[in-house]
Amino acid sequence: MMAVPGPSPSPSTRLALAREDRHADAARTRIAVQGLTKRFTSTGREFVAVDDVSFEVKQGEFVALLGPSGCGKSTILNMVAGLLPRSGGRILIDDDTVETGRVNRKVGYVFQRDTLFPWRTVEQNIGYGLEIAGIHKAARAGRVASAIDKAGLAGFAQSFPRMLSGGMRQRVALMRTLILEPEILLMDEPFGALDTHTKLEMHKTLLEIWERERQTVLFVTHDLGEAITLASRIILLSARPGRLKEDFEIALLRPRDPVSLRESAEFGRLYSHIWHSLGEEFRRTRVD
């Protein structure tokens, strides 16, 4: 006789259960930004970079913070990450006030600039967070290897960052953050420096990971196409000083394919709709 399958759920069932768990508290607010203000002083003159911005990001949402250059969107993200002190207002992550300089283990951050450690190999870069958390080398190896696979970096484990292309480096940076399994992911124009083709490939990688793992994401960008492709919601900021202008729900079907999506009528409709609003802000920056 053949062995009778046991009662434990098959892998796919388990995945579905996990997803349901996450959907169960989908209404939970993970990031709450209330009346956030940032003033800078440069050459004796004070100017307002972010002016009274409030919004919320709920569990499992992918929110794009969209606005023209210099509108303070990265400043907002850095205040949410606790990298920058705020001049006014409050930021809560899971009901805890964000304090500058204090690291929240639930939060992962991906920089726009290349911040890989050039003296570490791809493998050592991706394993960095696990290493400093004191996880033993043997225990790290499996997770690092699967992260390398997931990012399509097989064969480059022993390479140093300078041997990689810009896109590959940004994949390493992404996996370096994701391997720590952050529930909340803050991304500061992570693909801003990449060419269009590489950018679309990165969108594909990120969408695959996000549609599987459903982290709560706050994604800063000035690229409308990118925002529509990735996000479930777009928060549009005005030109400087950054104020909340509009909030768009992007109800496109998932899983999304970044290339075919761009050819769909729905994408075009959303694009021209938001473009109108964004365009006003771009024009304002130019007049300033």
């Binding site: 690291v103 951050y109 920089f111 911040t115 450690f117 400093i132």
Partner: peptide
């Protein structure tokens, strides 16, 4: 930014010194 990245991944002041400042 490399220091900030290390901190955001949970590095203490001493670990930042050992793993970022010294090699750099």
């Amino acid at each position: 930014d490399q220091i900030a990245a290390a901190r955001l991944m949970g590095a203490s002041e001493f670990i930042v010194l050992r793993t970022v400042v010294v090699p750099s």
